[in-house]
Design a protein around this nucleic acid. Structure first.
Lengths: 202, 202
DNA sequence: GTCTATAGGCGGATAGAC
DNA sequence: GTCTATCCGCCTATAGAC
């Protein structure tokens, strides 16, 4: 917090470049490769500057996580405003680009308290947003919310999509076509709001 | 391969202790903490001995993975031989003990070819075993295997259980009760082999 | 099979000049 | 705000004694 945050004063964007560089290296080579020297080089600055902006490397990792959060949350909110929130949820969590970085942070979170707390907070915000969208969608389809709690349906869709991405990232694809087809079939079946339910919402 | 494998000759179990020590440290502090010095200390030997048994630290990581494989596969096979394979699959993958180590290896696999290949091979063997058990269970329940492909059902159950564990490991529990209850309700519904199906198998 | 010793490098972090 | 220079520790890996 001692380091400048929004102070766009004399800073040439080095802070932002450092955050972006760290994310890139973590994604491509793992958190262990994201050293102060490597991220500085990637950002085009000298190593000591890292410690001008961030008290320690752990703080930098935390900032990488925070920087991605608002962007992600907005993407999620936008996507879930679409016609079919259930399919949107599936597509959203099938995005392979975030997978590697997520895995790194999960691994980090297992051993660093600050990362764990931040990740928990983010995960819960995401879940709240996704569950809200699913609630609306299920209600519009006339589905009994007691029998199929929106939060459970939301998690099922999102976690399944993520699991497929995680596996794909390490080259495992056995059964993926079948599971994708199965899920997408269920989504199509639930696809359109049922007529009688549409009335009951009026 | 130059290092002794099953040579129980004059070795006091140092090799096995090194593998166990590495697993412990990876689980507790992450793969980056599993250095030759730390694992040697944990195993009660000197650092250089690590390089007598393993050409490099990466090779040691690989051996940790391999050592766990046979144990795990047997556990899985045993569990799935139970009365209710679907519930067994759910319980099996809800085991919190393996979670942290799995996460470490997933992260490692994203950046090391040898680990990735080994993990892929293991994952596919596990999937084959689990799918076989699910196939039998679904058939016994008279479920249409075209509409619900065993590999998809198997993945859905296993991956959902694992996702819950992964989240729990970082302290996220929002919605877990609802999802567990939902899944377990579905499992109960599918619980007993249906009478007519039982006949059709005769 | 296990050790001591060491080479040579990279790591986090700080002091202080500009 | 960015740099140079530096401290000091830990790392992987090897050589060679016992």
């Amino acid at each position: 917090m001692a380091a400048p945050r929004k102070a766009r004063s004399a800073d040439n964007g080095a802070r932002l470049r450092l955050i972006a560089a760290t994310a890139t290296i973590m994604r491509d080579e793992g958190y262990a490769a994201a050293t102060s020297r490597r991220v500085a080089a990637e950002a085009g600055v000298k190593q000591a500057l890292v410690y001008y902006y961030f008290p320690s490397m752990d703080d930098l990792f935390l900032e990488v996580l925070r920087a991605g959060t608002e962007v992600s949350l907005n993407r999620i909110r936008d996507a879930l405003a679409a016609d079919d929130p259930l399919t949107a949820l599936w597509t959203l969590n099938s995005d392979l680009r975030m997978t590697a970085l997520n895995t790194e942070f999960m691994a980090l979170a297992n051993h660093r308290k600050a990362i764990r707390a931040e990740l928990k907070s983010i995960a819960e915000r995401v879940r709240d947003i996704e569950t809200a969208a699913v609630t609306v969608a299920l209600r519009a389809r006339g589905i009994d919310l007691q029998a199929a709690p929106p939060v459970a349906v939301s998690m099922l869709i999102a976690q399944t999509a993520r699991s497929l991405c995680n596996e794909e990232a390490v080259g495992v694809t056995l059964g993926h076509d079948e599971l994708r087809e199965f899920v997408e079939h269920q989504l199509r079946t639930l696809g359109a709001p049922s007529p009688e339910a549409a009335h009951s919402v009026d």
